[in-house]
């Protein structure tokens, strides 16, 4: 990995509600990882648009819901039987 220079660093302490002010970052969203040795890593994230649902999938959903509301179901499926296909 390339070297990531430190822009600046500072010390903080948590207030009574376990908060501290985060300064000097342009990101608004972070994923947080807390390590067992008490290091906390904040990784910047960005929101991106979720992929739209295709017309074919929407039609499937509509038909399934229509039948579900009409009480038309095909009975329970055996998920374990499907998992056994891949256990060989």
């Amino acid at each position: 990995m390339a070297e990531n220079p430190i822009a600046f660093e500072y010390n903080v302490h948590l207030d009574d509600k376990n908060r501290f002010a985060l300064r000097g970052t342009r990101a608004r969203y972070f994923s947080v990882r807390v390590f067992k040795d008490n290091h906390v890593l904040l990784s910047p994230q960005k929101l991106v648009a979720e992929q739209p649902i295709s017309p074919a999938t929407l039609r499937q959903i509509a038909r399934s819901i229509k039948n579900l509301k009409a009480g038309k179901t095909a009975g329970a499926v055996d998920v374990r039987a499907a998992r056994k296909v891949f256990e060989r």
């Binding site: 070297e3 430190i6 994923s31 990784s43 960005k46 991106v48 979720e50």
Partner: peptide, 20 residues
């Protein structure tokens, strides 16, 4: 999958952190 589409959250790659 729809090619070219992305997840809701994208993680920005991290670089190596130097020691302070």
């Amino acid at each position: 999958p729809d090619t070219g589409k992305r997840k809701v959250y994208e993680r920005i790659p991290l670089s190596r952190f130097p020691s302070s």
